[in-house]
Amino acid sequence: MNTNYAIDLSLKPTTFDLWHVCLAGTVALLSIIMIVLLLSVLIGMLRCRKKRQSSQQQVMTAEPVVKVVEKIVEVEKIVQAPAPEPIVLKESTPDAALQLLSLLQKEARFIDFIKEDISAYADVEIGVAARVVHEGCSKAINEHFTLAPVRTEQEGNKITLAQGFDAATVRLTGNIVGTAPFTGTLIHKGWQVNNIRLPKLTQGHNASIIAPAEVEL
């Protein structure tokens, strides 16, 4: 059997034998794998980008909401305790409204005031109680919320809203016709909450008890 192979690059194959079939098959297979791989990478990247965009959009839409009570403060706490079961502070999500009521009751006797029948009292007496409520409310609100006016201009002044103003932060009323820029009178400067610092609650805490009954022994 002749095992001497000569290398001659000018030679052209004339017979399409089994070896050539195998060779062609391998090339085809490899190229298919390549294409599939590249495609999957491309699709994966596209998906990722979409997700990031959508989450950014969520953040964007969540920001200007001024509804104080429903806003969720998500503070992730890394708790490293050597105890067998880690203690996780409950997020204030569903309890936030109750929490706010509890704060207002504690500092300002808010629920007491609202629940009392004031028709039986003279204005002077109500005024005395209103001081307690006002003082306490302002303490509770200032401690837990950072409030700022939406517009810093003087109320009653004329202001102009350029095209593309944020309709969520400025509400147009009255004779709304024509196109922006709109010029009108600032009736109310608006309020926005820039920061919320609500207390965290322990796992077992029953937030629906706004004020526990008090029994003196």
Partner: peptide, 18 residues
């Protein structure tokens, strides 16, 4: 500065001292 010592019970207007 007006000072009010609120009643400890739930009646705020009735029992407060001013």
């Amino acid at each position: 500065i007006p000072m009010v010592v609120a009643n400890r019970g739930s009646s705020l207007i009735g029992g407060s001292l001013r």
